[in-house]
Design a protein around this nucleic acid. Structure first.
Length: 379
RNA sequence: GGGGGGGUGCCCGAGUGGCCAAAGGGAGCAGACUGUAAAUCUGUCGGCGCAGCCUACGGAGGUUCAAAUCCUCCCCCCCCCA
């Protein structure tokens, strides 16, 4: 671990580049993270329908948890007293906590926002909960993840330019406060050093994105995230924005696209220089009965699979693809059997981990364009 | 043997003269989901030559301008008493 103007920083080492696509390693106190890397989401301290051992077996290197949810249930102090987030999740690898900034978007109907912070009506008991940058950092310190995020304002894709501009300004001010709070804690959580990432906002507006990047670079973070995308905006604009922002971020720092998980989308953002990303899509769509397969997706609820004796994918090492046929998996899904959720979740996470690992190899061997052609699909 | 209740669309179940191809569930069929208020939500859901017609509320007949709804007979199911 190095420090960067007082902030813990887990160094990112660029190993290879193919076009703009990057292969690298993040050296964390809990082991290396090979990038590009997809991070499964375990909002409440568990990746739904997955046990820790299966999560590891699926190829996950690092997992997410959520500050809003865990700080309310069971409570950050409870997590700390229960032994910290790693103990709670039975996950010895690195963990990243989102700050609750996404809930400013997803729970905006329950939120009132001003410059000091966001007043949520708790989805758990209706209580008033004010999240400020300082509280978000304090909760994340108590939770004890390795990577922590600035508290940001994520506006919806339908927001006006003025609203997005407002969100950029506020996100910058909050980022400064987050960094300050983090410095005051010595960059330490209850379970070791924490690396704090800044989050770029600005919707799909190039000027606002550029401004956001400049302001965050001014404050200075050991890594940067691209936020505020995949929230309802036009897909091409999302990709263009990703390319723009990635190009402005320092090459020696990790780049994190927050919230993208469709296979084609991952390949596209990797091609634009993104290193890590997370998403609920693979786990959620799995629970809804849809499997990721090469060339697209497969909705097992569709009647056409009822009698299929084919595996989801013939060459996939996951449990769902070894012994279970599409017809049987469909049966489990249709009957709402818990095993069906588990198997499809394991498959989708395995699929993405394999795909991204393959992307990494392709970048190293300089064949990423070909790889994209082989794995890409309309989505 | 006596008394009572009931048979509605694939299933459960509302509906007791017209606004009923008939509420609501479920199942089925299909779609959505991207820093997780999500094992969720949305659409569809008798047939057809589809702004109309046909078939349909246990069966048959009847009353009525009009019947899932009223009357008669029949078939079947359930409960209580004996």
């Amino acid at each position: 671990m190095e420090t960067l103007s007082g902030l813990p920083s887990f160094p990112y080492r660029l190993e290879a580049q193919d076009g703009l696509a990057r292969a690298g390693v993040i050296d964390t106190p809990r082991g290396p993270v090979l990038t590009p890397c997809f991070m499964p989401v375990g909002t409440k301290g568990t990746v739904k329908a997955m046990s820790p051992d299966r999560l590891r077996a699926s190829g996950a290197q690092i997992v997410l948890a959520n500050t809003y949810h865990l700080s309310l249930r069971p409570g950050s102090d409870a997590v700390r007293r229960l032994g910290g987030l790693h103990r709670l999740m039975q996950w010895e690898g690195p963990i990243l906590t989102d700050s609750g900034g996404y809930q400013v978007f997803s729970l905006r109907d329950t939120a009132k926002l001003d410059d000091s912070g966001v007043a949520f009506r708790s989805i758990y008991d209706g209580s008033r909960q004010v999240f400020t940058p300082e509280r978000a950092m304090g909760e994340q310190q108590a939770l004890g993840a390795d990577f922590v995020m600035c508290f940001d304002q994520c506006p919806p894709g339908t927001a006006t330019r003025a609203e997005v501009a407002d969100a950029v300004e506020r996100t910058t001010r909050w980022a400064a406060r987050c960094k300050q709070a983090h410095l005051e804690a010595g960059g330490m959580g209850t379970d070791g050093p924490q690396m704090l990432l800044g989050i770029v906002q600005g919707g799909v507006d190039a000027e606002l994105r550029i401004a956001s990047v400049e302001q965050l670079l001014q404050i200075g973070f050991p890594g940067y995230a691209i936020g505020g995308l995949t929230v309802g905006e036009d897909r091409q604009a999302m990709l263009d924005t990703t390319g723009l922002v990635a190009g402005l971020l320092p090459a020696d720092r990790v780049r994190y696209f927050m919230g993208i998980g469709d296979p084609q989308g991952l390949l596209e953002v990797i091609a634009r220089g993104v290193d890590i990303f997370d998403c609920v899509l693979p786990t959620r769509t799995a629970r809804m009965g849809t499997a990721f397969i090469r060339g697209g997706k497969l909705n097992l609820r569709n009647a056409q699979h009822a009698l299929s004796t084919e595996p989801l994918e013939p060459d996939c090492p996951c449990r769902a693809c070894n012994g279970f046929s599409r017809g049987v998996l469909r049966h489990l899904i249709m009957q709402k059997e818990i095993l069906g959720l588990m198997l499809l979740t394991e498959h989708n996470l395995t699929f993405l981990a394999r795909m991204v690992a393959g992307a990494r190899e392709a970048i190293i061997t300089g064949s990423y364009a070909t790889f994209m052609g082989e794995w890409g699909a309309s989505w």
